[in-house]
Every structure is written in structure tokens, then in C-alpha cells.
Design a protein around this nucleic acid. Structure first.
Length: 645
RNA sequence: GCGCCGGUGGUCUAGUGGUAUGACAAUGGCCUUCCAAGCCAUUAACCCGGGUUCAAAUCCCGGCCGGCGCACCA
């Protein structure tokens, strides 16, 4: 069994994720997260929400997944998602059929044609395959649209699409969100939700699917404000992440032979200009810390900069967070500068204002040429054309005020030249006070593919070691994201041990901890069951519990045990202790130092594995278990640099 | 979408033109005072459709699903 199939087998068997609707043969690109997977995914989402929204003071919205067609006309997805492909019958190479037509003819917008017409044009002009030169005249043109389409309401009058990214559901609500943010830039709006892309070829389990979860943050910033540290409310807190280590794979290194990474820090990357946009640098910093916190192996992680040709239609600078999964680098997050593209487009297409009013420090007095036409003259004189005359006068006043110097002014109205006495135009240079201006914010967008983050956390958590001579496989999941936090077992289900353990499990659940009660089989078997799904601690009720009001806690990673108090008259104490453990407020080692009286329970402990790996349970140190090399691919020989999308 | 390979209990797997092997898991019971392996029992499978054949899980065709490669990944 390969590592990959072993991982898939574990995911399926233990209910992390599996193909959806297998009873009906399954459907490619759709997965169901089972009980443990749903819990793990939710914990990752909660951790994201805590770090990127709550702690940043940003807001969260929850928009619809279906939007009417005009939204995606404006966003650009309708055009760029709708591609016509033609495949060479000889060499098998695929090409953009519309591009071939445009190259062979003087047509510039072949993209707008139907597939039949493009196929005809290719036949008419006897277009050849750019790769091998074979004739494409008989090849068929196929269309694929990566957006799922639907109809809103009965009939086909209102086409709609499932959103291909959650972001649009934020952009289209910009006016209300800006109002809610009291028109103060910058402000951030996040969303965790489903997005849909009708992928041609879904692959690799949950890595490339047709329905997926995104966690996106759209930060709206003032395009004119310089990030210089002068305004703590407007600038990224670069000082807070200055020393965060970054593994960068910038454009220059990708083009160079060596494939070298740049090991640097946030502060250094900014000062050396490796990262252009300070906000991007900031997010790379807090995201790197976050990835490590939730258990990504930072030795299998890098930030790769998009090459110019790779940038999306909206982006100017973009970095991908990539994790090495199954020997391939997979994009798990994109950090993009989207500029004012989205808001400008939605403003144009919707007619709504997508701007923020930015007051000047000092109101400015300006002189502005203006007209105040005498309608009692223009009305009778020009009849229904009078409004057009006024409009022409207003434009002229702004563009050519000197024209009003004479007795009369000549303007064009509907192609006819009219002379208007200046006296009736009410022309004057008026003095106005301008308090500020309307600006279209620019957008910084960290966009997380939650399913891929899930895949990375899952795969990077796999460990193998030997406990008491027996090989075991376990998941070193951070306590914060582990689907089950604590296994609760009676040593035997007799003499009241089971009852006591059930009570404890129940009281822990009341505290919001996920507790799994299990009295089946030997105690060792139960430990292994929890190890396999990454449960950080197991609590065992034994005979001493009945005598001395203590239970044992067993650490997943080291398989060592300590004895902690579990006073029956204070049921909350144990819950507090475990909640602290989950939150990282204490650690297994700290508890061992505090409570362990030297009475070793059983004789657990790893026989092999490094002794340096000293049971860190805070979960922040995802690298501590990296001595278990078993999970790497066989020689890594199928490594390529194919990235995700 | 194209090509190659594959699809047998929950999982992994043996297998032959005559409806199926084993293991693990699960469930019930026994045993067991802390790390999967003892004993008994039970549950449970040939991806779907068509063809050939007396008979198809097995051979053929198509589909679906999966893995890999190519293409695609706004």
C-alpha cells in the first residue's frame, strides 16, 4: 500500500471523508466529511475565524451561493470561465479554439461566438495545430464552463450560477458593508462558505473537488494611503510579525536554475522588497504562525510567488501558500492583491456607488466654473431640447471656461450649432469647499482552501513509532483541531468503574469538550483507537479512582501517563484542567510536574523515536515529530512542481 | 476530455465460466488491575447496464467510480 492509499483508507474507514453518494456509484469531485472529518474541518474553520476575523477585528458575513448572471458578468467569471477547446486529432494537444480563430482571421472576439461557428471558422480557414501542424478542420470544438449554471425561479429568464469563489458575495454587498464599517478604511470582511467549480478532471481526493469550502478575507484599503507605520489604525501591524520566519519561493528563484528558497523573516522580506505589498507580508506572517499552530509541517511548506503569466485577471501581486502533499506541492491558500478591479467592475455593471468618502485633513477651497442657466429663456427657446442644452453648457463650463468670455457661446446640440447669450447661462466661477473625495478601495485577499488545509493538516499529522515493542500509527493533531479531544475509559467495566467514567465523560461534554466514552476491548486497544484518529489525551478511571479521587491522563504522543485529581464533589475541576490543556494554557509536561507523585501508571512510553521529542502538547510545535520519516513517499521520485490552482 | 491500469464484506485481500478465501475491524459473551495480537459466537461483499453462454463475479462492449500521465486549473 502506498502512503497515499493508506491515508485514503484511514480517511474512509474512520470517517474523515469519503466519496459522496457511493450507493449510487458515486459522483466525481464530491466528498462527504464523515463525523470525525466534519469535526476536524469545523475546528480548522473555528481556528481560522478566531485568528483572521475575531483577532483582527474583522466582520463575518454569510452570503448566498447562488447569484444572478450579471454578478458574474461584472466579476469577469462568465468570460474567463467559458472556454472553447479543440483537441488535435493527431498529437492530442488541446488548444483554445477561439484563440486559434483570432490568430487566423481578423476577428477579435471569437470568444463571443458559439462552438459551431468557431468550428466552421476553423474548417474554413483550415487552421492547423500549432503543435504538430495537423489540420484541425475535422476536430470538434467543445465548450466548458467552470461555473455551475442554474435557473432562478421557473423558466430560463433569470439564469444564475453557483459562485466559483465566496468573494463575490462580499463585493456585491460592499455599499452596506461599508456603511456598517462606518465608512472607515481599512476594514475587513470574511466569509467561510462553499464555492463550486465544474472541474474538468477532479483528482486526488479532496485536493481537487467540484464543491469546496473557502475561507476568504477581503480587506478593503485606501489606495492612497502609504503603509509607513504612521497610522496604527490604517497600517498592518508589521512589528507583530517582524520576526516570523518565512520560506519564500519568489519569481527570481523560480526562474533560476537552483530552485532555491529564500529563508527570511517578514521584516526582512519587506525591507528587501521581496514582498511588494506590506499587507501581503503581514498576512503571510500571521498565516505562517497559524499554519504551524494547527499542525502544518513547516518543513513541507513554502510561499510561492505567482509568475506574471500566472496571475488571475484581477491580481497584480500574488503569493500562494503551498504544502507538500504526497510529494507534490499543493496550493492551500492564495494571497492576492485584487486592486480596485472587483469594486470598479461592480460599480460599472450595477450602477451603484462602490466608493468610500475620504475626508481631507483640511477642507479645500476650490474655484469651479459653473453654470446656472436661465430656464425661462432656454425653455421657450429650445423646447424639449433644453435639458440637452443645459448638459452641454455644464460640460463646456468644466472643460473650456474661457469660452464664456464673449457675448455668446456656441455649443453643439444634437449635431446642430446653437449660439447662446452668455448672460442667460448664469456662468460664474464659484468658490466651493471640498471636504474630501470618493475613492474606490483596493482589496487585499487571503483566500484559504479549507479542504486543502484540511488535507495538509491530516497528512502532515501522520506519525509512526513503537510503543512497548508494538508499532503504532497515530495522528499528531493539534489539540485545538483534533476531532475528539479526550477518550474516557474505565479500566474495566465493572465494580462501578464504568459508571464513574460515564459520569466524567458526561461532565466533560457539558463543558464543551468532545469526549469519547469507550469500554470495549482491552485498554490498549482503546488507546490505539484514539491514537489513530489523533485524540490528544485519554482519561482512564481505575481502581485508585474509587479510592483516591484521581484519574490517569495519557498523552497521545509520548504514551506516558500521569495521575491528576478528579474530586467527585467538584466535578468542574477536571473539566477546567482539560479545557486548559486544549487551549494551550497548560501542557502535559506542566501537569506532570505539578501532579505526578512519581507513581508511574503502567509502564507506557515509547521505546523508540527520539527522546528529544519531549511531549510538547501545545500543538504549536508541529515539527517535533519529524523524525518519523515513514510517511514520506518512496524516495519522493514522483515529485514534480505541479501546483494546484 | 484523451490514454494506461484498476473496482470482491466497513477495510485490506484470495479466487475460478458453476454465487466466493482469509485477515483486520465491528457487535454480543467469556477472560483481563493500563498500551491493538486469548477464547466462543454473530453480522457482512463480487460497481452498474447490455452481450456471449445451459450458466458470468470471472469473457466481451458500454457506463460509473478511483489511481497515474497528458490537457485544463479563470
Amino acid at each position: 500500500m502506498t502512503d497515499r492509499s493508506r491515508l485514503t483508507e484511514l480517511a474512509t474507514r474512520r470517517g474523515f471523508y469519503f466519496p459522496a453518494a457511493e450507493a449510487y456509484g458515486g459522483v466525481a469531485g464530491f466528498y462527504t466529511y464523515g463525523p470525525l472529518g466534519a469535526a476536524l474541518k469545523r475546528n480548522i474553520e473555528d481556528a481560522w475565524r478566531e485568528r483572521f476575523l475575531t483577532r483582527e477585528g474583522h466582520m463575518e458575513v454569510d452570503g448566498p451561493t447562488v447569484m444572478p448572471e450579471p454578478v458574474f458578468e461584472a466579476s469577469g467569471h462568465l468570460d474567463t470561465f467559458d472556454d472553447m477547446m479543440i483537441e488535435c486529432p493527431d498529437c492530442g494537444e488541446s488548444h483554445r479554439a477561439d484563440h486559434l480563430v483570432e490568430a487566423a482571421t481578423d476577428i477579435e472576439d471569437a470568444e463571443a461566438f458559439g462552438t459551431e461557428r468557431v468550428a466552421d471558422l476553423i474548417a474554413d480557414h483550415d487552421v492547423a495545430c500549432p503543435n504538430c501542424g495537423a489540420s484541425l478542420a475535422d476536430a470538434s470544438v467543445s465548450e466548458f464552463n467552470l461555473m455551475f449554471g442554474t435557473n432562478i425561479g421557473p423558466g430560463s429568464a433569470a439564469p444564475g450560477y453557483l459562485r466559483p469563489e465566496t468573494a463575490q458575495a462580499i463585493f456585491v454587498e460592499f455599499p452596506r458593508l461599508a456603511e456598517y464599517a462606518r465608512n472607515q478604511l481599512p476594514f475587513g470582511v470574511g466569509q467561510i462558505g462553499k464555492a463550486y467549480r465544474n472541474e474538468i478532471s477532479p483528482r486526488r481526493g479532496i485536493i481537487r473537488v467540484r464543491e469546496f469550502t473557502q475561507a476568504e478575507l477581503e480587506l478593503f484599503v485606501d489606495p492612497e494611503s502609504e503603509v509607513d507605520g504612521s497610522d496604527p489604525d490604517a497600517d498592518p501591524d508589521l512589528a507583530a510579525v517582524a520576526n516570523v520566519p518565512l520560506t519564500l519561493y519568489p519569481i527570481d528563484e523560480q526562474r533560476a536554475e537552483g530552485n532555491e528558497y529564500v529563508e527570511t523573516t517578514v521584516a526582512q522580506a519587506v525591507s528587501e522588497g521581496l514582498i511588494g505589498e506590506p499587507w501581503i507580508a503581514y498576512y503571510l506572517g500571521i498565516a505562517a504562525e497559524w499554519y504551524e499552530r494547527i499542525g502544518i509541517d513547516m518543513d513541507r511548506f513554502r510561499y510561492r510567488q505567482h509568475l506574471p503569466g500566472e496571475l488571475s485577471h484581477y491580481a497584480s501581486e500574488c503569493w500562494d501558500a503551498e504544502a507538500e502533499l504526497g510529494g507534490n506541492w499543493v496550493e492551500i491558500t492564495g494571497f492576492a492583491t485584487r486592486g480596485s478591479y472587483d469594486l470598479s467592475r461592480h460599480a460599472d455593471f450595477s450602477g451603484e456607488s462602490m466608493t468610500i468618502f475620504e475626508p481631507y485633513d483640511e477642507p479645500q477651497k476650490i474655484e469651479r466654473p459653473a453654470v446656472d442657466p436661465d430656464m425661462s429663456f432656454l425653455g421657450p427657446e429650445f423646447g424639449e431640447r433644453a435639458p440637452a442644452v443645459v448638459e452641454a453648457l455644464e460640460e463646456r463650463a468644466a472643460s473650456d471656461p474661457e469660452a464664456f468670455d464673449g457675448e455668446a457661446i456656441e455649443i453643439d446640440v444634437d449635431g446642430e450649432t446653437c449660439a447662446i447669450p452668455v448672460a442667460v447661462t448664469g456662468f460664474d466661477v464659484i468658490e466651493e469647499t471640498v471636504a474630501g473625495e470618493h475613492v474606490t478601495p483596493e482589496v487585499i485577499e487571503p483566500s484559504f482552501g479549507i479542504d486543502r488545509v484540511f488535507a495538509a493538516v491530516f497528512e502532515h499529522a501522520v506519525r509512526r513509532d513503537v510503543v512497548e515493542g508494538k508499532e503504532r500509527t497515530y495522528l499528531e493533531l493539534a489539540p485545538e483541531v483534533a476531532p475528539t479531544f479526550v477518550g474516557v475509559f474505565p479500566l474495566m467495566d465493572k465494580e462501578g468503574l464504568g459508571e464513574r467514567a460515564r459520569e466524567i465523560a458526561s461532565s466533560l461534554r457539558e463543558r464543551g469538550l468532545t469526549a469519547q466514552y469507550d469500554d470495549s476491548g482491552s485498554i490498549g486497544r482503546r488507546y490505539r483507537r484514539q491514537d489513530e484518529v489523533g485524540t490528544p489525551v485519554c482519561l482512564t478511571v481505575d481502581y485508585e479512582t474509587l479510592e483516591g479521587d484521581t484519574v490517569t491522563l495519557r498523552d497521545r504522543d509520548s504514551a506516558t501517563q500521569i495521575r491528576v485529581p478528579a474530586p467527585p464533589d467538584e466535578p468542574g475541576a477536571l473539566g477546567r484542567l482539560l479545557a486548559d490543556l486544549r487551549a494551550g494554557a497548560t501542557s502535559f509536561d506542566a501537569l506532570a510536574a505539578e501532579y505526578d507523585d512519581g507513581t508511574v501508571v503502567g509502564d507506557g512510553g515509547t521505546d523508540e523515536g527520539t527522546d528529544g521529542d519531549d511531549n510538547t502538547v501545545e500543538g504549536a510545535d508541529g515539527r517535533s515529530g519529524s523524525e518519523h520519516g515513514d510517511e514520506s513517499t518512496d524516495g519522493g521520485n514522483e515529485r514534480d512542481d505541479a501546483s494546484g490552482d
